[in-house]
């Protein structure tokens, strides 16, 4: 099921990203928009923010060209295409569990899962480092102080990455995963 959806998603992505007819793009826009609303789920929380952000970003890139060549069709085409792709992707990730897509390879899904969990953990600690710097700084930190901070961040996460890599390797061994 997931794989079929993934195939469908890839097909439509390639299809939409090669579309140029405005009518067709507009039609698709309304179809996707209504389907998204019909699907309305918990995971669509950030929908409007992302939607607006994507639209603005697309305009930022395309408008200068339209203003210069005074052909606004171009900006409209790009806007519709970009938003259609955005909605398509959102629809896909809100229905499909990304990790299950990799279920064909134990190694790959394991790799993705532990990468995500390491990264989330590191990010939390990194945030604490930044807050601690802010908390301890009475004045705006000077360049040298920021460089010391940077060195420490890199040192800390480097050591931690090596340690975590080693620990998980040993844990895997003790559970009998000898190979990947």
């Amino acid at each position: 099921m997931n794989k079929a959806l993934f195939g469908l998603y890839l097909f439509f992505t390639v299809y939409v990203s090669s579309l140029r007819e405005l009518n067709l793009l507009l039609l698709l826009f309304f179809v996707l928009f209504s389907v998204l609303f019909a699907l309305k789920r918990r995971r669509l929380k950030g929908f409007f923010k992302g939607f607006l952000y994507t639209a603005l970003f697309s305009l930022m890139l395309s408008l200068p060209y339209s203003l210069w060549s005074s052909s606004f069709d171009y900006s409209i085409m790009m806007l519709l295409r970009v938003l259609n792709l955005y909605m398509l992707t959102l629809m896909f990730i809100s229905t499909v569990n990304l990790y299950s897509l990799l279920s064909f390879s134990k190694t790959l899904s394991f790799l993705l899962v532990i990468s995500v969990s390491f990264t989330l953990a590191y990010r939390r600690v990194f945030e604490n480092f930044q807050q601690a710097l802010r908390s301890r700084s009475i004045e705006k930190p000077k360049r040298q102080e920021l460089l010391n901070f940077l060195r420490r961040i890199m040192g800390y996460f480097f050591e931690r990455a090596l340690r975590d890599g080693q620990e998980v390797t040993m844990a895997m061994k003790s559970r009998g995963f000898d190979h990947d």
Binding site: N128, F129, A132, L133, S135, I138, N148, R151, R152, I153
Partner: peptide
């Protein structure tokens, strides 16, 4: 404020970054 109010973080490691 920064001079008068001080926080000891749960993980002390994050507060230390000098040589």
């Amino acid at each position: 404020f920064r001079r008068e109010v001080a926080l000891l973080f749960q993980n002390p490691e994050v507060m230390l970054f000098n040589p």
